[in-house]
Design a protein around this nucleic acid. Sequence first.
DNA 1: CGGATCGTTGATCAACTTCAACGGTCGTGG
DNA 2: CCACGACCGTTGAAGTTGATCAACGATCCG
Lengths: 197, 197
Amino acid sequence: MIDGAFNILKLYFKNKIEISDEEFDYWKSFFIHKEIKKNKFLLTEEDICRHIYFVTSGCLRSFTIDKNGNEHVIQFAPENWWISDLNSFSNEVSSLINIDAIVDTTILKIEKEYYNKLSIEFPKWNNLFMNLLQNSRGAYERRVLSYLNSSAEERYIHFIKHFSSIAPQIPQHMIASYLGITPESLSRIRKHISDNK
Amino acid sequence: MIDGAFNILKLYFKNKIEISDEEFDYWKSFFIHKEIKKNKFLLTEEDICRHIYFVTSGCLRSFTIDKNGNEHVIQFAPENWWISDLNSFSNEVSSLINIDAIVDTTILKIEKEYYNKLSIEFPKWNNLFMNLLQNSRGAYERRVLSYLNSSAEERYIHFIKHFSSIAPQIPQHMIASYLGITPESLSRIRKHISDNK
DNA sequence: CGGATCGTTGATCAACTTCAACGGTCGTGG
DNA sequence: CCACGACCGTTGAAGTTGATCAACGATCCG
């Protein structure tokens, strides 16, 4: 199982950058393998986020809880995705978000100290994360635009397409939360879509 | 005028990082000064964005035009802000956004080639832009959350507070566009706020 | 087996949009 | 330098979208 997880990480890196087996074995030594059962938390609000997590199977989500007690899903992280609270991680301030597992999940995590070490030793490590950061920013930018110019139904259809591999695993009320609508509205949207088929 | 612009850039850097006058004079040599009249474009869709822009006076905005011909404001960039299409800039693909001036504006712009040069020569340059990138990502994340948990009126009040210095210069219909509502709705929201005072 | 959670459905309500009209201001060309 | 057209912000009326509240059956899990 652990070997499987590291293999997924290796394939991920090989897919993104040039990296030798020796280099990977070195990088790998800074990651810790962990299993998180469904509904278990990896990070809760007010903790300081000290790791970056790479999902090797299952799915995590990050979310906030507003003043009325409503959850708002910020991000889903299925296999091959990274997740963290970058603000908390970088600035060592308490986190504003929670991260938990929506199904049984396995991750590889790396501590800030080692993350920084690899950043200094390997420009390509640094570049990879710089790229991830930029892509993440781009994804948020597109998501903002989707609120400006798309209906809830359009956003849902786009979500299903974009997350087709994991959407079936995600409870509907969490998808609704991610889209910014109520579970009832999502249920009606789904009905409307299937009626029109 | 040009000296004034470079002074603003210098103060900006001095405020963020340790930088000697000699270093600044070197950095400065890679920037070009430019004035943009109100309503003039700095970047249009399908161009490749070859610069990063620093605003030294006035205000720029970036926006997209959707399939129905409606404009959606992505960002305002007043004095001391950076603006660009990072996706286009980094990957040299055609841009999906437009940038224009909402009042007469002066900028300092730097080309990719020089930006990269400074990134290599000065880790602190690189760190500064890494920070900006991360802050920008954080701002988008918060903006996404504002759509998930705040009413249009709350978003407007937050916008006014956050952009108090430049909000009066920005036409209302652009603020409405930024907030994701119609100009009519914003007008009514403003009336509602002033009635309740 | 039993309680909690989930997705669905109905009825009503609130927020925001759309369409139309109007007065004010701005800038541009004659 | 003025007149005119374009654009802007506002207001009203009606329409749409999605929220809220309530109820119910199904499923999951302890």
